[in-house]
């Protein structure tokens, strides 16, 4: 990995710089030290991920500054900056598609993985051991044959509460760290669910959920859901990723498209906690649905998103303006960035 070439953007923490990651299906994980302008993969002999592996997800945590986690088609791998290599992490998930990894904001040893077939695995010791969450879910589903996890989120107020979304089954919540689950689908028009935003800023908690058929809102902590019209979406019905800017504002971003691997996509923005939405003018035409939007409380100004067909967009002003990166990286599932000490390897 080379040093950053140019970046007008600087983190508020002057002794830190940005390292970006992109998880690809077919090209392992890409790294960028110049805010996404150029990308490289780790050298091949790094002990872990093979170059053509399918890497579905990424996870970082401020308390694990040396690490980047990735869920792959061969198990969990952890990149350590200090040794500049991917290390295989033994787990019961070898052979599964590890589609999502989430590390608790309040406890960096509390890690949850979501797989295809849909199952949740919970570690309380930083990944040394795992327990199967035993989601009360069918082994088959319509359309995609095999259910899969699309989102794992830790509740912002209750550290033991997990929110897990399953395509195609619905929204599951566990209030005991993944030992028992309840299914929350009352009012959902379709259990093909993709992502959540949980907001506790207003008088009552508001949760937004993106689904195969549009946006849903819950004002009663997930007990029931209401379909929410988003007029600006027009004829695009496929609502994929939803992410709140990592500050106290009510700014939320949401991606929509014609279908998962379709022909076009758009990025929407709300400035009022998801009540109303406007289209963001991205440079050029988006080649398909934007799959992932990454926000980071390390600096709310720097936001990255990617289409599933490898386009990358970047904002350095909190999502007001966006740049398209020149480099296409093939099929991408997640993108992320991490603040690392400038003198780190």
């Amino acid at each position: 990995m080379t040093a950053a070439t140019d970046a007008a953007f600087r983190l508020a923490r002057a002794d830190h710089e940005v390292l970006c990651y992109a998880a690809s299906v077919g090209h392992s994980v890409w790294f960028s030290r110049d805010l996404g302008e150029s990308w490289l993969r780790a050298p091949t002999p790094t002990g872990g991920i093979y170059n053509e592996s399918r890497c579905w997800c990424l996870a970082t945590h401020p308390a694990r500054p040396d690490e980047v986690w990735s869920g792959t088609d061969q198990g969990i791998y952890v990149w350590r900056h200090s040794v500049q290599r991917w290390n295989y992490l033994p787990s019961p998930m070898d052979g599964l598609h590890i589609l999502k990894l989430a590390i608790s904001p309040s406890d960096s040893d509390f890690i949850v993985a979501g797989t295809r077939p849909a199952e949740v695995f919970v570690s309380r010791d930083g990944g040394r051991s795992w327990q199967c969450g035993k989601l009360p879910i069918g082994s088959e589903c319509s359309f995609i044959n095999t259910p899969r996890i699309t989102s794992i989120q830790f509740d912002p107020k209750e550290p033991e509460t997990l929110w897990v979304l399953v395509e195609i089954a619905g929204i599951f919540r566990s209030r005991d760290g993944g030992q028992s689950w309840e299914l929350l689908v009352e009012g959902l028009r379709d259990p093909d669910v993709h992502n959540l935003v949980i907001m506790d800023d207003l008088d009552d908690r508001v949760i937004l959920c993106s689904t195969e058929v549009g946006l849903h809102r819950s004002n009663d902590n997930g007990a029931s859901w209401e379909f929410q019209e988003v007029p600006v979406a027009g004829d695009l019905l496929y609502f994929r990723c939803i992410a709140r800017r990592a500050d106290q504002s009510g700014v939320i971003f949401m991606s929509i498209g014609d279908k998962p691997s379709g022909n076009t996509g758009r990025l929407l923005r709300s400035r009022d906690f998801g009540v109303s939405w406007e289209e963001i003018e991205l440079p050029g035409r988006v080649n398909t649905t934007i799959w992932w939007i990454f926000v980071n409380p390390e600096d709310s100004r720097l936001i990255l998103c990617n289409s599933i067909f490898g386009e990358i967009f970047r904002s350095t002003d909190g999502g007001e303006t966006w740049q398209r990166m020149q480099r296409f990286l093939g099929e991408l599932r997640e993108i992320a960035w991490q603040a690392i000490a400038i003198n780190a390897p």
Binding site: P90, S91, P92, G95, L96, R116, P117, E119, F121, S129, W130, Q131, C132, S139, E140, N145, T146
Partner: peptide, 26 residues
């Protein structure tokens, strides 16, 4: 690490022309 399973990917004919292949964790 006491969890063990096998992936089973059966091809199941349904109706005249449809075949589904779920991934089952056994």
């Amino acid at each position: 690490m006491s969890i063990a399973f096998r992936f089973y990917q059966p091809h199941i004919a349904q109706g005249e022309h449809e075949v589904v292949t779920p991934d089952l964790m056994l």
